[in-house]
Design a binder for these strands. Structure first.
Length: 137
RNA sequence: GCAGUAUGGCGGCUUGUCGCUCGUUAACGUUGUGGUUGCGAGAGGAAAGUCCGGGCAACACAGAGCGUCACAUUUCUUAACGGGAAGCUGCGGGUGACCGUAGGGUUAAGGUGACAGAAAAGAACCGCCGCAAUCGCGGUAAGGGUGAAAAGGUGGGGUAAGAGCCCACCGGGCACUGUGGUGACAUAGCGCGCCGCACCACCUGUGAGUUGCAAGUUCAUGUAUACCGGCAUCUAAGGGCUGCUCGUCCAUUGCCGGGGGGUAGAACGCUAUACCGACGCAGCAAUGCGCCGGACAGAUAAAUGACAAGCACCUGUCAUUCGACAGGCACAUAACCCGGCUUAUAGCCAUACUGCAUUC
RNA sequence: GGUCCUGUAGCUCAGCUGGAUAGAGCAACAGCCUUCUAAGCUGUGGGCCCUGGGUUCGAAUCCCAGCAGGAUCA
């Protein structure tokens, strides 16, 4: 199975991020919150970002560690859980993962919650009608 | 052996599975770029705080005066510093090894010193003495009391009473001479009764243009009418040039020409130098010189990892020979780059030294 | 990443430059007024002046270090 995760799959455009938080829907699986927005497929079917608020996790070392844990959980699970649902419906998606707890969580907890989130996003994508209008934006 | 002081150093390692960033043409592939595989490299001693000093970049800079800020014992060190090394003197802490802290001048004039106290800088409230005999006038810093601070200390002489007023010893200051030291200074002699607190302000010497890689350069997108130049008009407010003054330059409106604001994005800047390691020499040391070897992060919603197992180390319990079990394994994540300082830090090592206990 | 600002009563702020009494408004509490409440009037309490050192006789204030919170720069 291919678990690679390149830089292209990161969400960097500021306008896309603003759209995501304005119009996107939100799912909770404490300590994670996922904001996602279904969109027509472009060059990359999925783009994501991870945010660890400085207000909640003070130490820079812990923020970096948590970002790596979240990314690792996403990298290992998305191919099996997220992509089938998206490929079936033909939608693309932007996702933002926000860490909510004030204490750092161990990896197995994050992995479990990530599994739950991705499954719910995949089912949401399946329930959308397939893409008819290829008009971008 | 226990407890400590100073200086210097270390700051985990290995394996497996799955990954990330940069470089590389070695292979595959491609019109080419991108790509895949391989190979190489990939956080710290503080990367932190942003407290100093530089490099680098842009802008500014006719000149004169005033002001502001920082530093201030000596000798050295450095690209530079408010840093560092080794000393000197005073004060304080520790049984001790040792540690902390302060250090230009202030002769003259000026300001402040709450409350208390007579008085807070050339002092008379009580007291003492003389004249006078109620008051009052004069002399006096030995005694009292106040205060953070009250005008060298002890003894003797002296006097109306007292006082460095005079003398002896002690403490301090200044000048001269000798000796030691590169020097601050130390020490010996001799002379001068010279003996009035602290801070501010002031003076002297040295240094400082401003802003910072979000500096700055280029490209694509793109168009408010900012800004600039010329000509005509205007001469007052105001603005720029260094914080202020002098001085100097600009100015308002119209026309013509140039030009490209905001927003979002990409590339360069961007990593090879006051670099790192070994050895030798000079020096008490900081450091310098010579020589040999080496190449060591460049991300940008921000890579350098996640998970599992084992080892090493530390603590506790059991055992007191091997060991077993449980827990812990710090602080802290580069963002243009260096030199320092400060702060955080589990645990460990080396060298020198100190105190206590014990054995020979 | 750079530059700068602010921490004082439960809340919002003075006082710091120029050192010697810690204050104002709102809130709280008690009393008066009112049949009762609000408003109004009178009074009371409440502070490790963010933390730790230093200078000084004396520090909220000056100096140094740290900890929080905030603003700004293409």
């Amino acid at each position: 199975m291919d678990h690679k995760l390149k830089k292209d799959e990161k969400l960097c455009s500021r306008t896309a991020v603003n759209l995501l938080f304005d119009q996107g829907k939100s799912l909770m699986a404490f300590p994670l919150r996922a904001a996602y927005r279904l969109r027509p497929r472009g060059e990359h079917p999925v783009q994501f970002l991870i945010s660890i608020p400085k207000k909640r996790i003070r130490r820079a070392v812990m923020r970096v560690t948590l970002r790596r844990r979240v990314r690792e959980a996403y990298r290992l699970t998305r191919r099996e859980l997220l992509m089938p649902g998206l490929d079936q419906s033909g939608w693309g998606v932007d996702i933002a993962f926000v860490y909510l707890d004030k204490a750092p969580a161990p990896y197995h907890v994050i992995h479990e919650k990530m599994t739950s989130l991705l499954q719910r996003i995949a089912t949401a994508a399946e329930q959308q009608p397939p893409v008819n209008d290829p008009e971008p934006q």
